[in-house]
Design a protein around this nucleic acid. Structure first.
Lengths: 198, 198, 198, 198
DNA sequence: ACATACGGGACCTCCCGTTGCT
DNA sequence: AGCAACGGGAGGTCCCGTATGT
């Protein structure tokens, strides 16, 4: 195990990197094969449906990275409110750690391709839905209706994306911190009675 | 006044339309001159610094449109909380009215070009800053420290962009309604009794 | 015998189909293996000399199909003149039956590749020569010098190809009927005295 | 007058040359701009509808060349029968003069692109129709019903194309001579009463 | 202010043929 | 016989910016 990544995997990873940093337009085959040190001649062997397929897989990969950070945050904290704070802090770290170069691969592709490519919009939608589903489950577990849990999860994701965008443009992570605070306060207010935060 | 739009104006307007709907990549000269029914021969006469200049002006125009909606919302309501609800509702209307085709021109360009083009990132940043400044003034007028007013304004803008993104991807305006509710509640809580939030 | 077609056979047949309908350029390996439901992995096992070999065999197969129609026509009629009429009528049927999609695989390849590929030009030439030889023998049997029989055979083939081309472009089989009439009349005139047409 | 050919004209001419010699597939932009010594960057300036537009114009040009040869033949001879002989002889000369490299640009494109491109099939059809129309008028002038004149014209064109194809593949102009003889004899027979053929 | 043309390059897609491994 | 991957290149399209003439 832990074999060296296959060409195909390297291409998806490279694409995800490019999407994060410079968006869909920059994820050209040329850039991808260069970044991945992959053979250009077999691009369409691995991705017979072309660039959309490659990008869709990269979006899925990017989404799973962010989702993994959410899982980590949930596991390392006791309440959803704390997890949200942690999740947003991780996002802020990544942003700052890349000198504000790495944005959210999902959001970038979503805005750049919606509503032209159903495939890609679908991939973005799926990524968002997964985060929301994870969040909603965690929220519901703290004693909240499934319906309201879903709404709160949507708000968390919306705030993450909005704050990430603003933080990136301003080169300042404050929006992420403010959004985390806004959400955590609200979550504690709505869930607090039934679940003592440790 | 109210003269017919000049060639130059038509080009900026057409570009703004293209940015909203299909992003920076679609705002090619070819598409712009076609959409604007403008002569290609004088493109570089009007915009000697090229496509970036054109796009920057289009972002500014798009930003002013959204800003105008905010002004309208503030004038037609009594509190900032109500104005935010109204502002987000207007955004939802525009989104739905265009069959979820028209997104925010500022956000799209911001993600697509940051951090490659300082000019364009600056234009986006300026647009966001203008909305925040308007909001911050209105919030401060309801009895809040300038500092906290600025933070709340940032949160409003972050939520607008995040919710708009989610609403567009899902083809459902619910995220915008939820975000408006979250913000309005918080604004009322912090400003409501006339002042003392904490 | 009458076993299921081998992979190799299916590939040649698929190629012949593609040549007839869309020409040499459309007979890419990708299209061929898809049409034939054949494994790409063994393409160069079966056709070690590459695409030219495949196409040459497909031309030969196509030529034999047309030649078989000629044999049928000769057997089911009493004179060469009648056989020509029948042959052209069969060609018209095939053309119309395919909604004017199926042309002559030999002619298409001949024009598309002559004079670049000696192999393919040779394959086409052989196909034409076979039809002419069959015709010439039949004509000579009706009492005509071998020399003149060969000339008349050439004229029949030239008219078939020319009329097929015109009929296909116009989506109208009239040119084939006219050419058949022209040839039959001439054949009857030159052979008529010695061989009463039934 | 007799100005140097424009870039656009040179491109069409070069394309016509390539179509004649090597078919539609060989008329790539790369080959065209090389042959025409034209700037590749303005290809789509001159032919905004792309390769099909270029090829359609080249087919029209090629068709007009062949048509001009027909006009010449008609003017330099006394009867249609003689003109057909002359026309076919000119075709044979061109074929032989190019060492059997130059075929008919119209026929090649017709077979290669029919029925995929309506534009190109139309261009080919138009070229054929023009020759037929010229021929039909000339035939009718010799005392033949318009209807029969049209049929005979079709036969002439079909024989030209078929014989040209065979002559090219065989590297031997005999098919063209035989076809001319066949047609001339028939024309003389059908028109003979009013115009002594011999 | 506008038109026509140049000029080089990037885009995605698809091509043909080869190479080791079953 | 068949497979997965490689490898370089050509295909048509469209890009941005510039250069001349009015």
């Amino acid at each position: 195990m832990d074999e060296p990544a296959t060409t195909r995997q390297r291409m998806v990873q490279a694409t995800e990197r490019l999407l994060r940093r410079r968006g869909y337009a920059a994820a050209s085959w040329r850039n991808v094969v260069h970044e991945a040190a992959a053979p250009w001649g077999s691009a369409y062997h691995h991705f017979p449906e072309g660039k959309e397929q490659l990008a869709a897989e990269a979006v899925a990969l990017g989404g799973s990275h962010v989702g993994a950070a959410l899982d980590t945050a949930l596991q390392s904290t006791g309440t959803v409110a704390a997890a949200v704070r942690r999740w947003f802090a991780l996002a802020a770290e990544n942003l700052k750690g890349s000198d504000f170069q790495d944005g959210c691969p999902v959001a970038t592709v979503a805005l750049e391709t919606a509503p032209q490519s159903a495939t890609l919009t679908g991939a973005c939608s799926t990524a968002f839905a997964r985060w929301e589903s994870t969040l909603a489950s965690a929220i519901a577990r703290e004693g909240c209706s499934r319906r309201r849990a879903g709404e709160l999860a949507t708000l968390v994701v919306a705030n993450l994306e909005g704050a990430l965008l603003l933080s990136r443009v301003r080169r300042d992570t404050r929006p992420l911190r403010l959004a985390a605070e806004l959400l955590a306060t609200r979550l504690e207010a709505e869930l607090g009675s039934s679940k003592p935060p440790r």
